[in-house]
Amino acid sequence: MSLSAALSRRSFLAMGAAGASLAGTGAQAQRRTLTAGQVLERMKANLNTPWREGVGVDRFIAGGPDTAVRGVATVMMASFDALKDSLKAGCNFVITHEPTYWSHQDRLDELRDDPLYKVKLDYLTRGDMAILHLHDHWHAHRSVDGIHVGTARVLGWSQYMHKDNPRYYTVPPMTVLDMARHIQARMKARTLRVIGDPGQTVSRLYASYGNFGGLSGAQIFENVDVMVIGEAQDWDLPMFVRDSLAAGRDKALIVIGHVLSEQWGMEYAAEWLRGFVKEVPVRYVPIIEPYWNPERPVMEINTRL
């Protein structure tokens, strides 16, 4: 199937129009050309944490330091939808918290001949786009993990965050059900899931947005009533909480979904970037919750290229 050929002319005509309006400003615009590498250098200077090149997953996934930036988009995950929306908003430099190519490390060894990979790569190339993976360093942002700044804000919990460890909160006592409803309402997390007694009162909370794996959760639960996370495998932390309940312990787990648990931190990233990127627009591009459940089926994915 010639998927590459399926790329419609429409989106590129729209991009061409955006490009033309920039080109029209002539020599003055040329002098001010901002590169993705310059944006990255300013980011490094503003993270309040050392940039550890080559450690972890943060790097250019598409384009590179020399890509001329027409606009910057911050996104939670570089889904195809997010790339379309970024270009539509005039932004060809996408800063993403989560991967582009379907693994944490954006590994391509088994995907170079993948038809979807080819279409996505072609879309990025034709749009003259750059993608920067900003995962580890955004969590390392100080004084507070950049993701947690955004999530605390959207939940209205910034004042409850512990000063010594921003993953711990002491919130006003509420039931697990009310807490789940609050999070669902604020984060629009329609498929959020819970293990616990809905009527249990909770106050001491540990938040680990995104994926949470590993037995450290068993120790953390000694200090809290409830953990709020993005995703986990059932036999990991969810089973630990299930067993804690079965042992008569009042513990609860609220699982939001990975994207919706973290993307508020990328909203904050846009605000942070605007503090030192003045030449081009910087926009937060929200992405959809991937899931629906049979009670509320919806179709939100844009299927047009």
Binding site: L116, K120, L305
Partner: peptide, 8 residues
């Protein structure tokens, strides 16, 4: 999601 986003 990406498959669906290219029309598959």
């Amino acid at each position: 999601q990406d498959q669906i986003a290219i029309g598959l």
